[in-house]
Design a protein around this nucleic acid. Sequence first.
DNA 1: TTGAATGCAAAGTATTTGCAGTTTG
DNA 2: CAAACTGCAAATACTTTGCATTCAA
Lengths: 136, 136
Amino acid sequence: MILEELRRVDSHPSADELYLMVRRRLPRISLGTIYRNLDILTEAGEIRRIDSGSTLKRFDGTTAPHHHIRCVRCDRIADAHIEVKIDIDERIQRLTGFRILGHHVEFLGLCPRCHTQPAAQPSLAPEIPTAPVTRT
Amino acid sequence: MILEELRRVDSHPSADELYLMVRRRLPRISLGTIYRNLDILTEAGEIRRIDSGSTLKRFDGTTAPHHHIRCVRCDRIADAHIEVKIDIDERIQRLTGFRILGHHVEFLGLCPRCHTQPAAQPSLAPEIPTAPVTRT
DNA sequence: TTGAATGCAAAGTATTTGCAGTTTG
DNA sequence: CAAACTGCAAATACTTTGCATTCAA
């Protein structure tokens, strides 16, 4: 049922948000169970855990390869369904000695809501956009 | 002095590791001060905060544009000094409604150490980052 | 009936914050 | 001296875990 709820939305809820969602259908469920099943589902490859932004982790019901865009102000995450060509994995492998398993592009920006409201929020994202904007 | 220590290494220490490093020179410094200054330095654009992997955040003394590669097993981070061409910011902007500020590519893989040791470790010692994992 | 899954609460990890004392210009 | 900074400890935010209980095959 956790999986169902996660697949039902196209947002990227945190464990806590999912807890609230699932609890509407399963009022006695506990947060611990949410976390435990989120782990299981992640390891089973049914969902994706998104580690970025704040310490809080978000989850993605879609495992199909796609990238994300994160609002540097409110931490909201949206999907960036766009194809990015990166075929330099082998080179990185040589340069770093790592065995590369994959890669993920994260775009940073301001979501429509934060973009419109110029007023400062409780905590302005202290983050400076990390990305080099390389042009072709 | 925090900045000095961070710039001295080419690893990506956590606040706690930095605390241990700095404390060798400033024995009375507190963790709170480390965090506070790390925030200031990040907002000033002197360093970069890396949000990925575990809940723990790591810091990068280099602000020059580059990407990272993270070991999915031990969470170690190395630099991927390689140019990635991405020329689709405007398209993402249209598709998502976000105002794009930048992007960052994260490669995932196994670091040389974890790659060699197939056995799973309970919790890899969070060694003080003096030894660089890789150099470029 | 037995192993797996759960609720609950306590513990754990990483980070932030209040405050009084200290330093700096 | 005022403003900024610090140590310390308490507080916070999120996640994990132990254990007794419940569930399902």
